[in-house]
Amino acid sequence: MIYAIASGKGGTGKTTVTASLAALWDRPVIAVDLDVEEPNLHLFLHPELTSEESACMEIPVLDAARCTLCGECAAFCQFKALSVMGKTLLLFPEMCHGCGGCLALCPEKALSPGGRELGQIVSGHFRTDHSSSGRAQDAGFLMGRLRVGEAMSPPLMRQVKARLPQTPGTDILIDSPPGVSCPAVNAVMDADVIVLVTEPTPFGLHDFRLAVEAFRPLGKPMGAVVNRAGIGDMGVQDFCRAQGIPVWAEIPFNRAVAEAYSRGEVVARAVPELHAVLLALMARMQGAAATSISTANPAEVRHA
């Protein structure tokens, strides 16, 4: 089962919740950081990182001797990554989305595939607190890290997702990027269950509504986690009730939680009263996933 932990607003506690869930998870699990622009999960799970490789996207490289300046590629490219200027074909590799259209189109075969570095894919493992057998176990860790200066995160996210093992019985927890546009949708689109982390403030509510609007059409089971409960107002809880979105956990605001986080600790370990809250959240997520198998479109079911 794939669980995506997402939010509209940034800084509501996605990583806090993902790290705690990963540490407590009672089944074989892989923790995945798909917030490739600002990956943070490793700062709390402290995994042992065992491999790092660079990820590239295919972009065109020009053989000027073959180019007849016909301009077909430039006219076709939707992203203005090629342009005929005077007697040269100019390439703007940072604009390229890697669709391969120009390579397929060039009548002179003057364009060949090259690479643009998107960032790194890092993997390793960490210890969870317990398994169904009651013992700590090794769990997988995977993250993408966007190269600073690279604008496009979805291509790197796709490559990280392609590394996910399709092992039946192993759950996947995805720490998603904030927002509700293409990177966030890319992170949650393959999940079986979506957990939306929010905070009970006007900003939290506003961005939570956007997230519900963006993710609901995916037709996946979805529940809310209200973090820092007790600050702000009751707008988020009222909205959830009106929309029929279950609140799977309320994490009370507590300075001890914020301080444990500031020390890079897993808060469910550091703050005893959160342990039970996170375990209950895990059980609700697993329950929602079990329900989703029976109702999902068979063609879309993975890891069933």
Partner: peptide, 10 residues
Amino acid sequence: GAPGIGCPVI
């Protein structure tokens, strides 16, 4: 601005 370091921030 937006969070992150990707296209909207750039």
